[in-house]
Amino acid sequence: MFEATNELGNLVLSTGGTLTDPNAAAALAVGLAALGAGYAERGIGSAAVGAMAEDDDLFVNGLILTVLPETIVILALVVVFIVG
């Protein structure tokens, strides 16, 4: 899946158009980072729900671990400020 999105990005960038605009490229970077975070959260989330089903006390730990990949998106947002 990631290879495919990378290729798509390359293709769009090399054919020119609006995406050569730095702002658009930064937006794409944030979007891809969010995609990656979502994929990571899928696995962690289902494991967390499984653990919570066995033991309610794990709710807080599960929640924290589930949203950890979200940091990738926040770091990607930095790109927006650098470029913009």
Binding site: A47, G50, E54
Partner: peptide, 14 residues
């Protein structure tokens, strides 16, 4: 397949 969910539950039971 959803191994993450099942493994989390199984590990707790283990």
């Amino acid at each position: 397949p959803n191994p993450e969910y099942v493994i989390a539950r199984v590990r707790a039971r283990r």
